[in-house]
């Protein structure tokens, strides 16, 4: 059973951590940041509420998180293919001199890193440390 201090702190901090991750992702073209750090920050928010609460409802939310991982990876491929078909080169800049392409790729990468990190954490969180057979 978790202490109420841990529960309250996790519940109060998680929205702000998620918001900061979204900010780092979306403003990656104007300030330090980008898809990878933003995705990891958002994943740390979800991990915070996973370790501070034992509720089954939250665990069921991240049950199929690896599908988002797959979606992010192939959306990145689709953006590249869009550049190939519309402009003639793989990952071509479809909107010259405007950061739309970078923001799009940032969002896709942050979704992918977020889902991948949470999936890794959920896998390690479920492990039992006792060996099944000692030989």
């Amino acid at each position: 059973m978790k202490s109420p201090i841990v529960k309250t702190a996790g519940r109060a901090l998680t929205p702000f951590v998620l918001l900061y991750g979204a900010y780092v992702t979306l403003f990656g073209v104007l300030s330090p940041g980008g898809g990878f750090p933003g995705g990891v920050i958002m994943a740390s928010g979800v991990i915070l509420i996973l370790v501070s609460h034992d509720s089954e409802k939250i665990k069921s939310l991240v049950e199929n998180i690896e599908w988002f991982d797959t979606f992010g990876a192939f959306a990145f491929l689709l953006v590249g293919l869009g550049g190939l078909f519309l402009s003639g080169a793989y990952f071509a800049n479809l909107w010259p001199r405007s950061p739309v392409m970078l923001i799009l790729l940032d969002i896709v990468v942050s979704l992918k890193v977020f889902a991948g990190t949470v999936a890794l954490f959920v896998y390690f969180f479920k492990q039992e440390v006792e060996p099944s057979s000692t030989e």
């Binding site: 060996p131 099944s132 057979s133 000692t134």
Partner: peptide
């Protein structure tokens, strides 16, 4: 390493 620990202890 988790898998190895499971198999060999």
């Amino acid at each position: 390493i988790f898998q190895l620990y499971r198999r060999y202890g």
